[in-house]
Structures are given as structure tokens and as C-alpha cells.
């Protein structure tokens, strides 16, 4: 089979199997995504981030945890590409290892906050009545606080540490997802295809999971990827305030915090981790924007 016939197979209007139909749909989405150069740039940034996290020990030239005190606060050079911090650790190596922390946080937040929001939002929208009132007022209560403040309160209560930081962020991230999921559910609730599904005798659980949730997921994915930048910043903020990762572990926000005393004389200590945060946040924003074009055709 040549590449051309693969393309034809994927884009076929007459698929022969469930898998071909599903893959074809996925491929069509990919083609739309690939048309947007900025989205592809975002994807490239994400891939680099993942590669850094996976292959950190091979990429990083120095030990990220301990350094030579003699090498304190050296400017960028051939040996230390981005300079060293006040403990003589190589900043480049710490940024590479920090990618693991960042990826861990956003990955865990995404797989916890989004499903919670989805479940609460669709249940509220589908059942209506007092269930909806209770769930949505709870959501509103969470939304009433600024995210960072709420995350700070949770993190402070739970104590410092990576897992607690993730938990604190996840607890503050779900309410917007619940709102989106509920709005989508309300749009779907009175549709003919849901009435048709009721006419097949489908129970509420099947309607919720099989018919309503698939309609909510696209806009949720878009929103989550747009929120990633914010989550990275909150995680960095918690790290900066000392409520994130325990000290020797490299974390970008904490690194910025550690360098703030030397910001005028040894600018590289906090600048490079800051740039890393910027680039990754930007990458997720670009991906989110581009995904919106693929998954949510109403906007375009």
C-alpha cells in the first residue's frame, strides 16, 4: 500500500468497519489541525516538553539536585549553558528536570479536574430540578474565589508537596468545566436525537454517558488546553510561595523564586525558568486555539 491509498482509506466515505470510521474521523481532525501553523508550533513545544521529561537524564549535562559550591552564580558559558544558581547547580539541567514536574502537574490536573467538571455539569444539566440547583450553587461557590487564592488556601491546609499542590489546583480548576458541561448539556437535552434515544428505551445512565457526554467533551478539551497555561502559572506561583515541590527538586516556579534576590546582578537565575514557563504556557494556548477550530466548528 502506498501512502496515497492510506489517505484514501482513511478519508473514505464508505468505511468498512468501526475502526476505519473512527480513524477516518480522527485523521480528518488532524488534517484540519495541521493546517494551522501556530497550532503545529504549540504541538512542537508540547512534544519537546515531553521529550525533555522522558529523556532528562540523557539531555541534562549536570546533576540537577546538587552542585559544586565553587560554581555558585556563574553566568552562562560553554560549560553551564544557562549559568548556575546560588548552590552551584546547572540551571539548564534543572529546567530539563523541571519539565517532569510541570508535565506531572498539568497531566494530573487534567485527568482529575476535567472528569469531575464533566460529571457534575452533565448530571446537573440532565437531571435539572433540585439536583441542578445544589450542584450549580456549589460550583458558583468555588467560582466566587480567585483561583490562586483558593489554591493557596488548599495548599496551605494540605501542607507543601507536589501531590498536595496538584490536589489543590485540581480542586480549584473543575468549576469552569462544570459550567461548560452544563451549558452544552442544556443545548443537547431537548434535541431530537436525545428524544430518539429515549424512544429506544435507553436509561438515564446510558443517555448521560453515551449520548450527552460525547457532545460536551470537545469544548471541554479546548477549555482544558487553554487552561493549561493558567495551571502552569498557578503551579509556579505555589512553587514560588514555597507551597509546591519540596526544595531540592527542580520546579520552574520555585527556581524563579530562588533567583529573585539576585535578579539585578545574576539575572539568568530567574530569567531562564521564567522563559520556560512562558514558552510552555504559550504552547498550550496555541494548541487550545487550534483545537477549537477542529472540535468546535461553531466559532469559525
Amino acid at each position: 500500500m502506498t501512502t496515497i491509498s492510506w489517505r484514501d482509506w482513511l478519508l473514505s466515505d464508505t468505511p468498512d468497519s468501526r475502526w476505519q470510521a473512527r480513524l477516518g474521523r480522527f485523521y480528518l481532525g488532524w488534517l484540519t489541525f495541521a493546517r494551522n501553523p501556530l497550532g503545529m508550533l504549540g504541538l512542537a513545544i508540547l512534544i519537546v516538553l515531553v521529550l525533555c521529561a522522558l529523556f532528562a537524564p540523557w539531555i541534562a549535562p549536570h546533576n540537577p539536585i546538587s552542585g559544586e559550591l565553587g560554581d555558585r552564580l556563574l553566568p552562562p558559558s560553554g560549560e553551564f549553558w544557562l549559568g548556575t544558581d546560588q548552590q552551584g547547580r546547572d540551571i539548564f539541567s534543572r529546567i530539563i528536570y523541571g519539565a517532569r514536574t510541570t508535565l506531572f502537574i498539568i497531566g494530573l490536573v487534567a485527568v482529575t479536574a476535567a472528569p469531575i467538571g464533566l460529571l457534575i455539569g452533565t448530571t446537573a444539566g440532565f437531571l435539572g430540578g433540585w439536583v441542578e440547583s445544589v450542584l450549580m450553587r456549589l460550583t458558583d461557590a468555588f467560582l466566587a474565589f480567585p483561583k490562586l487564592i483558593l489554591a493557596l488556601a488548599f495548599a496551605a491546609a494540605l501542607g507543601p508537596g507536589l501531590e498536595n499542590a496538584v490536589l489543590a489546583i485540581a480542586l480549584t480548576a473543575w468549576p469552569p468545566y462544570a459550567r461548560i458541561a452544563r451549558a452544552e448539556t442544556l443545548a443537547v437535552r431537548n434535541s431530537d436525537y436525545l428524544a430518539a434515544a429515549r424512544m429506544t428505551g435507553a436509561g438515564p445512565l446510558r443517555l448521560l454517558i453515551g449520548h450527552i457526554m460525547p457532545m460536551c467533551i470537545p469544548s471541554l478539551i479546548v477549555r482544558v488546553s487553554l487552561d493549561m497555561a493558567g495551571i502552569i502559572l498557578i503551579a509556579a506561583g505555589l512553587g514560588f510561595l514555597g507551597l509546591g515541590v519540596a526544595p531540592p527538586q527542580p520546579e520552574w516556579g520555585a527556581m524563579v523564586s530562588e533567583g529573585r534576590e539576585q535578579i539585578l546582578d545574576q539575572w539568568w537565575v530567574c530569567t531562564y525558568p521564567g522563559i520556560a514557563i512562558c514558552i510552555v504556557s504559550l504552547g498550550f494556548n496555541l494548541i487550545g486555539d487550534s483545537l477549537r477550530d477542529v472540535l468546535d466548528p461553531r466559532g469559525s
Binding site: R18, A21, S191, D192, Y193, A195, A196, A197, T200, G201, A202, G203, R206, G210, H211, P214, M215
Partner: peptide, 25 residues
């Protein structure tokens, strides 16, 4: 239903639309 553009779930294949009632019953 009246509107054939609104009465089929946009994310389900014909196969799924037709086999779901069979599974339910």
C-alpha cells in the same frame, strides 16, 4: 422525527445508531 439532521446523534455511526436499541433490549 421531522428533521433528519437533528434526529441522528452526530457522533454515532449508523452502525451504533442501529445496534444500540438491540443492546438495550
Amino acid at each position: 422525527f421531522q428533521d433528519p439532521f437533528g434526529s441522528l446523534h452526530p457522533k454515532h455511526t449508523v452502525d451504533r445508531i442501529l445496534s444500540e436499541p438491540l443492546i438495550i433490549h
